[in-house]
Nucleic acid binder design. Structure first.
Length: 283
DNA sequence: ATGGTCGTTTGACGA
């Protein structure tokens, strides 16, 4: 919920804003539309960054989200990938991809917009498939280009959130069993080094500010009852610049959203959200 | 440990 209090100084208007931002790989926006509508109504995020929408842009259900009070910015391609940002606190300077100076992505995996004074990116990082697969090199290159785009898009002194499905578990405690991931993607040294490009720039893993040390996951394989065996990974991340990290008061993985009957199946990812209490000043 | 389950451009492929 956006809570704005205007404080009128001599020539400065300051808004203190409580903003809730969620990232959620929905694994098909069409298949998950009912669940997404219910989740938005229940949790009232101000900004929703969704991944794997699997929708072409001309099929995006703009009117449904507008009916819930959200502006929509989307970048899809049909069968695979696809990302969007929904915002009810404004949506300015939209941009898809890495930007003009950087080798473009062939897939719909990234977009940016300024929402409520925060520069927001919704990312769907390539999976990588296997360490010896070409897709792994694509993943590494993709993360290099994300870091390069960040340099152009924002400064660490400004409010920035880069969130999404990173397909990388930052640390061993972010997977149920590190040994099970030896020699596979999501935990390899090289891809973790690419995440460090983001943290070296100044971004902070906002979830870890509030859940230090816990093994809590955001993704569980559909197969073999992984969810009920707690065999998951934390790969859906919200990174914030220092001003955002300082004002991040709450973070949660809504693992209940990973549950559900065959008739109304969940995504294999749970929504992850943070609450940000920050101020915007306008002359 | 292995096999298992979702989604999509219906069916092989990606996750």
């Amino acid at each position: 919920m956006l809570k704005a209090i205007n404080i009128c100084h001599t020539k400065l208007l300051t808004w203190f804003v409580l903003m809730r931002i969620v990232t959620w790989n929905v694994n098909s926006l069409r298949a998950r539309l009912g669940r997404i509508e219910r989740w938005l109504a229940a949790f009232e995020p101000d900004v929703a960054c969704l991944q794997e929408t699997k929708l072409a842009d001309d099929a995006f259900p703009t009117e449904i989200f507008e009916g819930l009070g959200y502006e929509c910015f989307y970048h899809g391609q049909g069968r695979w990938n696809g990302v969007c940002i929904l915002s009810r606190v404004g949506l300015e300077n939209p941009m898809t991809g890495f930007g003009a100076e950087i080798e473009p992505d062939r897939e719909a995996r990234l977009l940016w917009a300024t929402c409520g004074g925060i520069r927001v990116a919704s990312c769907y990082v390539p999976n990588g498939r296997a360490l010896d697969h070409a897709h792994y090199q694509y993943k590494l290159s993709w993360l290099d280009r994300l870091a390069a785009a960040l340099e152009v898009q924002a400064s660490p002194s400004e409010p920035v959130i880069v969130c999404g499905d990173f397909n990388v578990a930052p640390e061993d405690k972010d997977v149920y069993d590190p040994k099970a991931f030896a020699d596979s993607t999501h935990t390899s040294t090289l891809e973790r080094k690419k995440l460090e490009l983001l943290t070296e720039w100044g971004l902070v893993d906002l979830f870890r500010l509030h859940h230090n040390g816990d093994s809590l996951f955001s993704w569980w394989d559909y197969r073999a009852g992984s969810f009920y065996k707690h065999m998951g990974m934390r790969i859906d991340l919200l990174y914030g610049s220092p001003p955002v990290a300082e004002s991040c008061g709450f973070a949660l993985i809504d693992r209940n959203e990973r549950k559900g009957p065959r008739q109304d199946p969940p995504s294999d990812h749970a929504p992850v959200f943070v609450d940000i209490d920050h101020s915007i000043s306008i002359k």
